[in-house]
Amino acid sequence: MTLIIVCLLVAHFFAFNVGASGSAATMGIAYGTGVVKKKRIALLLSGAGCMLGALWGGEVVETIGKGLISSDLLTIQAAAIILFVSAVTLCFTNIIGIPLSTSEVTVGAIVGVSISLQQLYLRNLLEILSFWIIIPAAAFITTFIFGILLKHYKSKYRFLPSKRMTKILSILLVLTGFLEAFAAGMNNVANAIGPLVGADVLSMNAGLLTGGLFMALGSVFLGGRVLETNGKKISYLSLSDGVVISGTSGILVLGASIIGIPIPMTQVTTSAIVGTGAVKDWKGIWENKVIHQIVKVWIASPMISLVIAFCLTEVLLQSNFYTVVIIASGIVATLILTNFGRGAIVNKSKHHTLKEEF
Rank of each mutant, 00 (worst) to 15 (best):
E127C: 10
I29A: 13
I29M: 14
I135T: 15
G49T: 03
F84E: 02
S130I: 05
L100E: 06
S130E: 07
T143L: 06
I41M: 14
Q118K: 11
S70P: 00
I41C: 08
I82A: 04
V111C: 00
K151F: 15
V36E: 05
F131P: 02
L43E: 05
I81C: 00
L150C: 11
A109K: 04
V36C: 04
A54P: 09
S70F: 05
I134C: 01
Y121W: 08
S71C: 05
V60T: 05
I134K: 04
S103E: 04
E62P: 01
G147H: 11
G32C: 06
G49P: 02
G47W: 06
I115W: 07
F144A: 03
G65K: 00
Q77L: 01
K39L: 15
T26M: 14
P136Q: 05
W56E: 09
G32M: 07
F144P: 01
L74F: 09
A139S: 10
T33M: 06
S86Y: 08
G53V: 09
R158S: 15
Y31K: 07
T106Y: 03
A30W: 07
L73N: 10
G58T: 10
V85A: 10
S155V: 11
I133E: 07
I81V: 14
M51C: 14
G97K: 07
L90K: 06
V107T: 13
